[in-house]
Write a protein that binds this DNA or RNA. Structure first.
Lengths: 216, 216
DNA sequence: GCAAAAGTGTTCGAGATACACCCATGA
DNA sequence: TCATGGGTGTATCTCGAACACTTTTGC
């Protein structure tokens, strides 16, 4: 072998998205005296990459069973200030309700931030977040990934709102309903929402909750 | 830190595609006494991931200036027989002509194989190749990536042939030309091909050779 | 009865699809 | 003159885009 084998530190980092307060938000964590960063950390011996991302998400934000997908691997030698770290980045989506950040088993403090230019993350993590945002927006148009943001039962208006928030534009109600129902991925529950002074809304559920399908 | 920091071996591996003999082919290399594998190998100290992939491609297949894109990072602990290796996989495309496999500076023997179920690669590399193939086929429909297979000047029939080979279906000549010309990514050179006993074909060139654009 | 969101169909235009014949050349 | 691939236009269809009013409820 012409080159010596060298060894590297690997971390898995997760851009966790949710919809809160009519905005797309991302979760950052902070340890005492440190800056805000993405949930994530070292890959362990004999640990699968996906498992590592899920473990850090659980340890640092108390979350389980989230939808997770690999994003990209970042490895520029100078991307982190001190030692070189290869980061296998993921992005994940959680429904609007499932936001109990209670279960953090370490001293990390998790907190949600609105996706805009004021995110207090370091440059290397900002780069990851930006790519995750682009990927998410792109994937809306050719998959059913948006359903991962929905709770067990939801109204079509709520689903439309999710699309509008991520795409940053308003959609036509009738066209949206036609399109989303023709996908065949959601079904009526028979129940109604009944809140506010207006007509109750039909509640829908996802047919295959964990599954993201390609469409069109 | 609750978990000790551990160190890993990282390799970059490249699925290099080209069109040869009216087929989609992939390059594998073999060292004396070993099995066929993807070009690639250890990441070096202070070496960028992309640079590592390009370096191995140059060392093992004598190629430079190819179109390269990160595919996925594979890290299951048991994916390689002996020691665990994290593989950052890439895929790359080279034009039909640029196939001088002369410049290999190591003792690897590069060879082209038709993309089918008889590829002599190990299971872990076969998994990478399969994913690269899916990605390539998907990307045909929403980008100009196919142009990376074309030489400096080419006929529309040759380009259509590339699409047909990757998609595995025949296309209508008139509709294909309308679509590909309306993209605005290629232009006529004014020259003609003049080979075979038939009418000479107009030669085209790519407007922005290195650039893969999204379409539609 | 009024405010507020739910729910519902039709028309129109653009872009994709299907399809067949003449052209230029070499042998 | 024949074989071979190069080159071209139109009719049709499908899918997405635009668009407004009625319904049900709480107050």
């Amino acid at each position: 072998m012409a080159y010596p084998i060298t060894f590297f530190t690997i971390s898995t980092d997760v851009v966790l998205f949710s919809i809160r307060n009519e905005r797309l938000e991302v979760l950052l964590v902070k340890r005492q005296g440190e800056i805000w960063k993405l949930p994530g950390g070292s890959l362990a011996v004999n640990e699968d990459l996906d498992a590592s991302a899920l473990r850090h998400l659980h340890e640092q934000a108390g979350l389980r069973g989230v939808y997770l997908e690999q994003l990209y691997t970042f490895g520029q030698p100078d991307r982190t200030p001190k030692n070189r770290i290869i980061s296998v980045a993921y992005y994940a989506l959680v429904p609007l309700q499932q936001l109990c950040l209670c279960g953090s088993s370490t001293d990390e403090k998790p907190c949600w931030f609105t996706m805009d230019n004021t995110l207090p993350a370091s440059p290397d993590h900002s780069e990851i977040i930006a790519m995750a945002h682009r990927r998410l927006a792109a994937k809306l148009s050719y998959s059913t990934i948006a359903l991962q943001f929905m709770p067990k039962r939801f109204t079509l208006s709520a689903l439309q709102s999710v699309y509008e928030i991520i795409l940053g534009e308003t959609l036509d109600k009738r066209n949206f309903r036609k399109r989303v129902l023709s996908m065949g991925c959601i079904e009526t529950t028979g129940e109604f929402s009944r809140e506010g002074n207006h007509r109750p809304a039909r509640l829908y559920r996802v047919k295959n909750p964990g599954k993201v399908e390609f469409i069109k």
